[in-house]
Design a protein around this nucleic acid. Structure first.
Lengths: 352, 352
DNA sequence: CTGAAAGCGCTTACAG
DNA sequence: CTGAAAGCGCTTACAG
């Protein structure tokens, strides 16, 4: 194939001339319109190839008033749950011909507002938003006024009228807590209390309701406020271990915190699962490779990302379709940090 | 502020009319040109605000032939090193008025080629590329023919004429290996051999050269091929532990592999640092929270990302500036997985 | 199934 | 310091 000296500079007009058709026809061919006769389409495609033609999306976007980019604004990429979600979403978008404009807000709502404006200027076709903590709910109204289709993920904006894909945080934490109860624990702590984070509120509710349903009294010194990081998990369990009356098990808000917890337990010469049971939530890949491997609740990060993309693209196509609110079903993954293996061993006849 | 019914639909012409100036002047104001009298600029800005004006980047891109998006194509976001790098780069780009078009290739060169084409169509102003394994070196030529400024990160394309930001992998692994030698080890394994990954080749060289310089014979059964994942690290150490003649220490290609190694060691009831020493490379955040905490070589992921953005933006401004090739200096971070704490304890007078 | 024409909203010389 | 004019490369009714 001989590339023209103008490689990359050819326009639709050049193709039209080379192929002996009008530029309208070229445009139709480039967009795979069924209106064009196959033979003509072939001629056009060959000419485009020969000229080293590159489609100019800026021109198309200007003309159409929208683009083939989708904005993805994520609160915390240091939490691999969101990275896994991003990977799922990005792949799915790509398969549908969209490309991802990414921004990481790091839970900074000022920054979030700034990047959203920027993405509006880019004429993003839609937005997948994992809102930063403390995002004002009016953001939903703003986005609608902008006419930007969006779906919120994991955290909602408390807006009835917008699409949301999340996980059943309440059932998830209940599953985890009940598992500890089933293993015989009654002294169960919760790390990650934060009354201004709706997800934390729900997870704490799941923990407390589970205890109540099992007639276990809630012991408030065992409910520890914590930011969402490994380091803060570490600090929280340290406080718990320093208590005169220690819990025998701990439910963590998420895996990130649980990983910090496991680390500190190890540092203190203790063994999670034997000396104290630990469960997390989210089911990040890393959880399976902790020491000991972390019992957690899989929230299906990739699936959430894929679903969010899919729902968004449907919303883009059809703004008037019914609102989608979907909570994925959590799934308990039992590993060793909860001590389930030790217990079953001591119950088996061949236990030493 | 009263928003017009046309919120978001106003153009530069509407502003011009409202402010009583020409649209050229409006354009200059929007681009913060110093040519416009402050008073005029103020009038224009007020009018824009009042009309709910949104800058249309598609139009600007079409006219200018370039955009304010920067493409970032990353080989492996399941490795948090690259996530950290991405975070650093994205933040820096945002500060400079650029927004990030992201794609995750997952080491798939077909997919990589596809997304690069797509980013070309978007008229990305530049590209930060962490190339997929086995990327043909001709990619550098292609990108140049496209006229797309780019900088490769971590892995180079073996092209003298293009910018590259990486880490001194050779010195890094040497640092790690020498640390084990200093602790008294002579039976040191290497996990992560891959002769078709240039980074692995260099790291293995660092390991081997360090042994040689210390007059330690290289024992090839202790050099284990492995893919770059936690699971593959797990499998590799299992093979090593099954050997009749086991090594007493192991250098891992990177932290991802090391995390898998630590997990398997724990699963076998052994303790890293006491029963076998482990060191990683990269210095991901997670390394500090392993059990035991992982001794590793910090390669400064955020810094690499920031530097890559900075160099790219300079390249965009000045295509003829001298080529930049920069290797960041690695830094050993001693934690417990290498057993340094145990050794120093046994050397201290108050050891039990 | 194909062509001629208008226009998307900017920026950029150029003239004053 | 400001204005009039041209044009970036597409898509989309519309007419045939």
């Amino acid at each position: 194939m001989v590339l023209s000296a103008q490689d990359g500079k050819a326009t639709i007009m050049d193709i039209a001339r080379a192929a002996g058709v009008s530029k309208s026809t070229v445009s139709l061919v480039l967009n795979n319109s069924p209106l064009v006769k196959p033979l003509t389409a072939e001629k056009v495609k060959n000419a485009a190839e020969k000229l080293g033609y590159v489609y100019n999306r800026s021109a198309a976007s200007l003309r159409q008033g929208t683009s083939n980019v989708v904005a993805m604004v994520v609160n915390d990429l240091t939490n691999s749950f969101f990275v896994e979600l991003l990977i799922g979403a990005e792949r799915k978008l790509l398969e549908s011909g969209f490309i991802t404009l990414l921004s990481h807000t790091g839970e900074d709502i000022k920054l979030q507002a700034q990047v959203l404006s920027s993405m509006r200027e880019q004429k993003a076709a839609g937005l997948i938003l994992c809102p930063a903590l403390y995002t004002p709910p009016e953001l939903a109204i703003t986005l609608k006024k902008w006419g930007m289709p969006f779906v919120t993920v994991m955290r909602s904006l408390n807006d009835e009228e917008s699409d949301f894909i999340g996980c059943d945080n309440y059932q998830g934490i209940k599953l985890a807590t009940q598992h500890l109860v089933n293993l015989g624990h009654t002294d169960i702590a919760f790390i990650g209390r934060n009354r201004t984070n709706s997800v934390s509120v729900v997870r704490q509710d799941g923990y407390e309701d589970c205890l109540r349903e099992n007639n276990i009294r809630i012991h408030s010194p065992w409910i520890i406020a914590s930011k969402i990081s490994m380091q803060d998990g570490k600090v929280a369990i340290r406080r718990l271990l320093a208590l005169k009356k220690r819990p025998t098990a701990v439910v963590c808000y998420n895996d990130l915190i649980a990983i910090g917890v496991l680390n500190e337990i190890g540092e203190q010469g203790l063994t999670a699962g034997r000396d104290i049971a630990v469960v997390g939530s989210d089911g990040v890949a890393m959880a399976g490779f902790c020491n000991p491997p972390l019992t957690t609740v899989a929230l299906h990060s990739h699936k959430v990302g894929e679903l969010a993309s899919q729902i968004l693209l449907e919303r883009v196509k059809n703004p008037d379709a019914p609102v989608v609110k979907q909570l994925l079903k959590p799934e308990l993954i039992v590993r060793k940090s909860c001590g389930a293996d030790i217990q079953s061993k001591s119950l088996s006849p061949d236990a030493s």
